[in-house]
Computed example of a mutant assay.
Amino acid sequence: MENIENIETARLLLRPMTEETATRVVRRAPAADDRWAPGYPTDGDVESATDFLGHCARTGDPQPFGDYEVVRRADDLVIGSLGFNRPPDDEGTVTVGYGLVEAARGHGYAAEALRALLDLARRRGITCVRGDADHDNVASQRVMTAAGMRFTGEDARVKYYETAWAGALRS
């Protein structure tokens, strides 16, 4: 497995999920040194960590295209998670998801974290990042727009967003 470093932003630390941390999230059982914000993990965090563990069991750790814990640097609390739903497909496309505990919403953290994840994807040669949000999840739609993703369409259930790069960098 490649050693994946934390991703730092102005206010956040995106810490790569490991099988050990994902297992604790799924069990909702923090270790003594875990600093989880009240409400973490959410049901969405548990679902994402479960998917991550499934990828690890089937094909090995997908990092850097796995999950990340979102840590607020001001108090070192894990306030949510975000990441890639699965490794890139043959065309270099990935899908992202994210979520924060209730108290951390509305402060721009999700857009800040998503911008960092989009930058990672671009630097790793990804050509397209996609996301979606339910029609009534206007906050998530705003997060994707604020992070630089553009609206590309909708169906009866969700609105779709994406960011694409021509000739993405390889590192």
Rank of each mutant, 00 (worst) to 15 (best):
D134P: 00
V143T: 15
I4N: 14
P64F: 11
Q63D: 04
P38H: 11
S81H: 10
V25C: 01
D75L: 05
L100C: 06
T163N: 09
A166H: 11
D119F: 06
A146E: 15
I126V: 15
G148R: 12
A139Q: 15
F52I: 03
G131D: 06
E20W: 03
R122N: 03
R24A: 05
G80M: 07
G106V: 09
D136T: 08
D155W: 11
G131A: 15
V101S: 10
E69K: 09
R86Y: 07
V158D: 15
I126Y: 03
G125H: 09
P88R: 04
R73K: 13
L82D: 01
E69H: 10
G106Q: 13
V96G: 02
E102N: 07
L114K: 05
V70Y: 14
P64L: 08
V78R: 15
R123G: 01
T9Y: 10
R28V: 01
A49I: 02
R24Y: 02
D33M: 04
T127W: 11
V26N: 07
Y160K: 06
A168F: 03
V71T: 09
D90N: 12
A57S: 14
A139H: 09
A121R: 12
V158F: 11
D132W: 07
Y68M: 09
T93I: 10
G125V: 01
P62C: 06
V96R: 10
L77I: 02
I126F: 02
A111C: 08
A49W: 08
W165E: 03
T145F: 04
C56M: 08
F52P: 01
R35I: 04
F151P: 00
Q141F: 02
P16G: 08
E2P: 00
P64W: 14
D76L: 07
R150C: 07
K159R: 15
G92R: 07
R124I: 01
T18P: 00
T23W: 08
R115K: 14
G92Q: 11
L13D: 02
T163V: 08
A57Q: 15
N3C: 05
H107E: 13
T145S: 13
D61F: 04
T145A: 11
D119H: 12
V70P: 00
T127A: 09
A111H: 09
A139D: 09
I7Y: 14
